[in-house]
Amino acid sequence: MSIRHSLLALLQDAPRYGYQLRSEFEERTGATWPLNIGQVYTTLDRLERDGLVQNDGDDGEGHVIYSITAAGAAEVEGWFAQPVHQSHPPRNELAIKLALAVTLPGVDVSAVIAAQRSASMTSLQDYTRSRRASPAAEAGVRPAPGDTAWLLVLDSLIFATEAEIRWLDHCESRMVALAKLPAPAVPPGAAAGAPAAARKGVRA
């Protein structure tokens, strides 16, 4: 998630201080990705260093106001114009967990899948209820921009969770199919269960 560009986009809307930026970000995204205020100010320092924002001084109430520069506005324009590239997929803890589960002895992969499916179904139900309760879900009524933003975030969470559940179903089907296949044959002279690389380093 680009906190850098998100803060720049909010500053393009209007000058703000750190706590305002955090509140605006969380309000517009439904607090789905909470921001640490320290992270906000660290990012502002870097943006100021890079000439993308400027410090406009104290507002008289102890708040340091930041505004976007021309270079910052150009940066935001480029961010909105460019697609988000997934050339380096983010780490998926669930995929990593299942990948390790199927390669380690003694792990009940089916139980891991079942537990995750139950949790994912609960999340999906929560997201769906929130979507139905959103003012933006009312037909024939133009929602406020903030309501539309939250609805888009909810839709993203719903689609992602639905895809996760389908993937879990696929994993379960694959495990069932694999269980019906004969175990791989052990090469003659190889110690059962010993990795080939390890066997090469063993002296007779």
Rank of each mutant, 00 (worst) to 15 (best):
R131S: 11
F159G: 05
L10K: 07
A115R: 15
Y17S: 04
A136C: 09
A119M: 10
L44C: 02
D147Q: 13
I37E: 10
E75D: 11
L11N: 01
A136V: 08
A137C: 06
A114Q: 13
M1R: 08
M175F: 07
V53N: 00
L157M: 14
D45H: 12
N36Q: 13
A185V: 15
Q125G: 06
L98H: 03
A71H: 00
I113S: 07
G57T: 06
A137G: 02
Q116E: 15
T128A: 12
E27R: 14
L47D: 00
D108I: 06
E26L: 04
E172A: 15
A31D: 11
L10D: 04
K97V: 11
L10G: 02
I65N: 05
L44N: 03
F25C: 01
A183M: 10
A160T: 12
Q125C: 04
S118C: 08
G189S: 05
T161S: 09
S23V: 10
A119G: 07
R174H: 11
G57S: 07
D50K: 10
E77I: 00
P105F: 04
T103E: 12
L98W: 03
P89G: 03
R28I: 01
D45K: 15
F80L: 12
E48W: 02
P187F: 06
A119F: 06
A95C: 06
A179L: 03
W167S: 12
R129W: 07
R132K: 13
L168H: 07
A198S: 10
P15M: 06
R166T: 09
Q12E: 11
I65S: 01
S173A: 15
K97R: 15
S87T: 12
L152Y: 08
L104W: 06
L98P: 03
N92G: 08
